[in-house]
Amino acid sequence: MNFGFTEEQLELQEMVREFVAKEITPIAGEMDAENATRPELFKMAADMGLLNVIVPEEYGGLGLDSVTVAMMYEELGKGCAGVATSMAANALATAPVLLAGNDEQKRMWCDILNEGGLAAFALTEPGAGSDAGGVSTRAVHDKEKKTYTLNGTKAFITNGGIADIYLVFANTRKDGGIRGLTAFIVPKGTPGFKVGRKEDKMGIRPSNTCELILDNVVIPESNRVGREGQGFRIAMQTLDSARPFVGAVSVGLAQAALDVAVAYAKERKQFGQPIASFEMIQEMVADMAMKIDAARLLVYRACAMRDEGVVFTKEAAMAKCFAADTAMEVTTNAVQIMGGYGYSKENPAEKRMRDAKIMQIYEGTNQIQRLVIANKVMY
């Protein structure tokens, strides 16, 4: 096992770190208050190649390995988990096309990302979250016209209101269920495809999250990704690939919270001495540091397994679950260490605590992750 990194990996990590420190961290609080990301950030991110990190070289991307991508997402998570989520959504939405799309679909999709475009992964619905088989959006096939007509509503879609291209899951069977779940490419501006309500969220507020409405949306047969009924497998494989990246953002979020808490503990004095000298504070800091490091290693292991092409469903679930739980615990303890100052909106600690909660919820709740892990261990 090699725990070292290449010179190229370290250079990319430092590049993202500098970008975060200069362009994201200083305005993270303002974007949180505005419930939106500054559009110029996406332009700068595109110029740096942060919007097409998983696009293979043959399709115009950098062809980065998963460990390198995780390193970059960790740095983005340190600056703002909301911005990191929007950028990581491009990888989430692209994975199904790379997994099951044909060459024409891959080139079309990747060209959009290479040009700085944003993508969205539209699976969740008002009545279908963890239960992907509950998707009720319908796709009716017209074999003569070689088209599909989509009708339904999607909910809590990251980049929903700002994406240029969408990967939408719909059911081709009247009675629903996972056997009819199918993936489709829906370009922005397709007639009948509308952006609904924008969510006013507790955390990751700079990340655009919207409802999507499909009202008789007609798309060509050529926009179907994979076969009819293959959507559930595509979605599950995609989530396996994406979960370590959620873990990476969680690790960055937690690391940033620890760094701020430690700096505060060294300066804040009580009873005539810095609170960093108190054993209770030291114990909290030690536990926070250990769990962050363990989470980081779980993330890297899952990413390395993905790159090796071996089955990593259990490891992906472990990485996401442990890292998300760690982010929630560490950010909560950071606020505790900083007391009333940490609870104030003038300090980034409370924002990180709000941001951390979603890590335990999206891309499969941590309860679902535990079911996945238990199933792989026991059966």
Rank of each mutant, 00 (worst) to 15 (best):
M284V: 13
R268Y: 10
A295K: 04
Q273T: 09
A276M: 13
Q270W: 03
D307Y: 07
V299F: 01
G272M: 11
M290T: 10
A263F: 06
V299Y: 00
V311L: 13
M288F: 10
L298H: 02
P274F: 03
A289L: 05
V285C: 14
V251S: 00
P274S: 11
G247C: 05
E267D: 12
A302Y: 01
R296V: 01
S250Y: 05
F312Q: 03
I281C: 14
V260N: 15
E267T: 06
A257W: 01
E315I: 02
V310E: 14
V251N: 01
M318V: 09
P274K: 09
T313G: 05
R268G: 07
A263H: 10
G272N: 11
F278V: 10
V285Y: 10
V251Q: 02
A261R: 04
A302L: 06
M290S: 13
L298K: 04
Y300N: 12
T313K: 11
A302E: 01
C303F: 00
L298A: 08
A295I: 00
D307F: 00
A289T: 03
I292K: 03
E267H: 08
M280S: 11
A294S: 11
G272C: 12
R306A: 08
M305I: 03
T313V: 09
Q273Y: 10
V260A: 14
A257C: 10
D259A: 05
K314P: 14
K266G: 14
G252R: 01
A248V: 00
M280V: 07
A263S: 14
L297Y: 04
L297E: 12
A254E: 04
S250K: 00
Q282L: 08
L297R: 04
T313E: 13
R268M: 12
A263D: 15
I275T: 08
E315A: 00
G309L: 10
V311K: 14
Y300M: 10
A304C: 07
G309F: 08
V260E: 15
A294I: 03
Y300D: 12
M288G: 01
L298D: 05
M280G: 10
E283A: 06
A248K: 05
S277R: 09
V249M: 14
M288R: 04
M290P: 08
E279L: 08
